[in-house]
Nucleic acid binder design. Structure first.
Lengths: 214, 214
DNA sequence: ATGCTTGGATAGTGGCACTACCCAAAGGAA
DNA sequence: TTCCTTTGGGTAGTGCCACTATCCAAGCAT
């Protein structure tokens, strides 16, 4: 398969594919001579993954490169590899540790982990980007003056834990290590917009049930 | 409160506040004379809401303007107003109805709504942006060749329905109509990053439980 | 021979969220 | 009174990002 065919089958322009090659999001094809390269099904698959991450998951190109670097790193064990790939994802800026709301959110979030009994997550507090994102989100809500109760937060957390169990169960149905990591990344990148859409749709459904269409 | 104080108390630069004023994200202050305007607590509150939507929710400025237009529109009933505000949010492009994956995802999604008994949502199929986002996400997953089972999708949907119930219960604890709509918007914009963070943290927790840190 | 494709490279585009600078008028402080 | 700051208003520029367009010389297909 040459560049033109790769482009046609993926729906991505040749110019964009070249751009991805330059940016290291796609491995170069097998060079046949100076002016021809051969691509295979794996290239097509990777290209579709990249596109899905960028278009559906809104992941920046630089981040995609980081994530893929971890996905392809055979030297790492599964948990580390999975974690590394997922940790490369977050797009939220560093919380300002000077900010009083951030500090309060910090305390509240640690409390939450205790309540939930997420002892493993608690061990990651200082380093996990997910934890930092959570702190930023909670601080933003508090700054707006909402008295979102800790119980509500706990309820949300339990729901997302159930979602995580579903994710990992599904991941385990895949045989190879590479596939497992890829599924995990997809679970973080593609399932998220899906959950968001389901969330909004559920809000509309529930709202209509309670108040009708008026 | 003058511009400088509004800037200091919100942590937003005066230049950016001027930009928001120009873009219609913030109502002009009460003009005292040609060179002075007075802002109040409501301005501060609105500014913080705007910042939260943009920074935490990653909502584009133009979209924020649309959402606020609906939030402030007293002429609409609650459900419509809520729906209108939420419908202004989505950032996913129109699905390509020619695409076979999109059409298959369409069918699958309608099937899902039947299974769930979300009859109200089904009535919105042709117009709801949330529904379209869902179709796009499902199509992307299918295009990558994953045999994500309908049961898994249904499980996710039930979880998000529980989340929606929590959202609306919390919304109802607020007395005024304006507050209710604002809370609903926040529920869509700010709770989402929070859920995402909780989701990733839960993945890390569950992964560590199953496989340890290695 | 002709026309298309290749990798490689460089430069340009369009959108977005600011950000910097300038202005004349107004008000307060010295 | 003079100086300084602040105001709204406006214009132009910045930095990032994801492409996109154009050019090139070399090679292969017909």
């Amino acid at each position: 398969m040459r560049l033109a065919e790769l482009s046609e089958r993926s729906g991505v322009s040749t110019a964009t594919i070249k751009y991805y090659l330059r940016e290291g999001l796609l491995a170069p094809g097998r060079q046949i001579n100076t002016t021809t390269a051969e691509y295979d099904e794996e290239h097509l698959r990777r290209l579709r993954l990249v596109r899905a991450m960028i278009q559906v998951g809104r992941v920046p190109v630089a981040t995609v490169r980081e994530v893929l670097r971890h996905v392809d790193d055979d030297s790492l064990g599964r948990t580390i590899r999975l974690g590394a790939a997922l940790w490369a994802l977050p797009q939220i800026p560093e919380p300002d540790t000077e900010d009083e709301y951030v500090r309060a959110a910090h305390g509240e979030t640690e409390q939450l982990l205790d309540t939930l009994g997420w002892s493993n997550a608690k061990a990651l507090v200082t380093i996990s980007p997910a934890y930092r994102s959570l702190v930023v989100a909670v601080a933003a809500l508090r700054r707006l003056g909402y008295d979102w109760s800790p119980e509500l937060l706990t309820s949300y957390a339990r729901l997302m834990h159930q979602a995580a169990v579903l994710d990992l169960d599904f991941m385990e149905t895949h045989p190879t290590e590479a596939e497992k990591v890829e599924v995990a990344v997809l679970g973080a990148v593609l399932v998220q917009p899906m959950l968001q859409a389901l969330h909004r749709l559920a809000q509309e459904e529930e709202s209509a049930r309670r108040y009708g269409f008026e």
